[in-house]
């Protein structure tokens, strides 16, 4: 099996429980960075893919609210909702009845969203929303790992999964103090720094934890 095929299968695996356990038609998983640039790591069908793409093109949509608030965003009736008019009219044209967004969170940091759509409108039961939120939390780590692999094939990801490394989360906590930002922004900054310097997330995290890299002075101390 090719590497690309393995990655495609991995994305499908992350999406499968949403389709199994929620009353929805399709699902798309996106990981966002600080500039709201996204990698859509999986879309179960064309409609789901288009819904994501439209929001990123417009720079507007429930996805961004879900990401910013790190909470679920529910649009039970696409045709009756007055929020995000541009995006929702597009969704309406795609014959989408309802949309539900769940945040991908690692502790206090949000790294992306899961979009679920249904062809008919209707509310989700509160318990079902909890299931969706729980599933999203469960796949957040693997989704980030997956996005990093897709983006630059980081060698580190082949060893112990990035999100399993405590240094990454410790560094997130240290950086949010150094930069006086949210955990979401701190983790995004760390990812951006790693990408820009061609090093792994784990290496950056380690430098932060050891005190060699301090973002309040924005540079290497030693």
């Amino acid at each position: 099996m090719s590497a690309a095929q393995t990655e495609a299968d991995a994305g499908q695996k992350l999406a499968a429980p949403f389709l199994d356990l929620l009353p929805i038609t399709g699902v798309a998983i996106s990981v966002l960075d600080r500039d709201h640039k996204a990698s859509v790591i999986h879309a179960s069908d064309d409609t789901a893919a288009q819904l994501e793409e439209t929001q990123f093109t417009l720079g507007d949509g429930p996805l961004f609210e879900c990401f910013a608030t790190a909470g679920p965003v529910l649009v039970p009736s696409v045709s009756d909702d007055s929020r995000w008019p541009l995006f929702l009219s597009h969704a309406d044209q795609l014959a989408v009845g309802a949309l539900f967004f769940f945040p991908l969170t690692l502790g206090a940091a949000c790294i992306g969203t899961v979009l679920c759509y249904r062809d008919s409108p209707g509310h989700l039961e509160r318990e079902t929303v909890d299931v969706g939120s729980g599933l999203a939390r469960a796949i957040a780590g693997p989704a980030l790992r997956h996005a990093i692999l897709l983006a630059d094939g980081e060698a580190d990801a082949k060893n112990t999964p990035t999100e399993m490394r405590r240094e990454v989360h410790q560094a997130t906590g240290m950086m949010l103090v150094q930069l006086d930002v949210s955990a979401t922004d701190a983790l995004a900054r760390m990812r951006a720094y790693a990408f820009a310097h061609g090093v792994s997330l784990r290496e950056v995290a380690r430098s932060v934890v050891s005190g060699h890299l301090d973002f309040s002075t924005e540079g290497l101390i030693t």
């Binding site: 502790g107 729980g134 469960a138 989360h169 410790q170 906590g173 240290m174 949010l176």
Partner: peptide
Amino acid sequence: TEQLHLALDTRILIEQAKGVLAQ
């Protein structure tokens, strides 16, 4: 499984909080 994942997520939060305190 929800409980398991909540436990794993709690661990991540603790690591982030440790970072805040350490800094």
